[in-house]
């Protein structure tokens, strides 16, 4: 396939349609000498991943407890859902103008990424609570278990698979938001920023390198979460997989 691409690109003879060779040399160049602003490729990756982890982490830290709480106190949620739920449907990118006004620097990125991560995690926890079986509560209550015990030993184990599923969805949205977030300026570093800089120069090979890296890093994080799921939920999977 790579070969076909190389041949196709050569035949097309457009300076803007790079072949795999061009992309590889752009990649080597970026690794060796950094980008046009002098930031190394690793610094760009590091900056983006750092922002992702902060924003995503915040999404999980707020999404899980709020989702569990609203799931446990459904009557409360029923009253406020008409206010909360519409936010779910506002794409993170739509928040950019407000984010520019309200926040600067890291907070701005973290805020936009948080928006991508929060709702999938929150919704997963919220819906997961409804799946807790009354009999599982009874098993612990009959021995005199406290509310907290039921929450940590019955509700949480039941909901955890949903939460991790929500985290994978949230991670996807959050990471996709990074390019948009870094477009808002503020910092000259980051994979998204780097991509935009090169696209303004019409240097497509570097743009493609950034795209591929964004894809691969997202994939890597997803795989890590999948491994975590496999480890945590071995009680659900068959022994052989």
């Amino acid at each position: 396939m790579l070969l076909l691409w190389q041949v196709g690109a050569a035949e097309y003879r457009s300076p803007y349609l790079p072949g795999p060779g061009d992309i590889y040399s752009a990649f080597v160049e970026l690794v060796r000498h950094g980008d046009i602003l002098g930031n190394t490729l690793w610094a760009n990756i590091g900056a983006s991943v750092y922002r992702l982890l902060i924003g995503f982490g915040l999404g999980v830290v707020f999404g899980v407890p709020l989702g569990l709480l609203m799931g446990l106190y459904k009557s409360v949620y029923r009253n406020i859902r008409a206010v909360v739920e519409p936010f779910r449907f506002i794409p993170p990118i739509a928040w950019i103008p407000l984010a520019i006004i309200l926040f600067t620097g890291l907070t701005r990125y973290a805020f936009l990424i948080f928006l991508g991560a929060f709702f999938p995690v929150f919704t997963a926890a919220l819906i997961g609570v409804a799946r807790v079986e009354p009999i599982h509560r009874k098993v612990t209550l009959v021995y005199g278990a406290s509310k907290v015990y039921v929450l940590t030993h019955v509700v949480l184990p039941t909901v955890l698979p949903d939460i991790l599923g929500g985290m994978r969805v949230g991670l996807g949205t959050a990471w996709m938001t990074i390019v948009a977030a870094e477009l808002t300026g503020g910092s000259a570093i980051g994979l998204g920023r780097m991509m935009v800089n090169y696209s303004e120069l019409l240097r497509i090979p570097e743009v493609v390198v950034a795209m591929v890296l964004i894809g691969l890093i997202g994939f890597l994080f997803n795989e890590i979460l999948l491994l975590l799921e496999k480890y945590l939920f071995r009680w659900r999977w068959q022994v052989t997989l």
Partner: peptide
Amino acid sequence: NPKRHNISFVFQEPSTLPW
């Protein structure tokens, strides 16, 4: 009161905790 009395229960439906 299950917190004060020492009670146990074998339920009619399956009641093992799957995790």
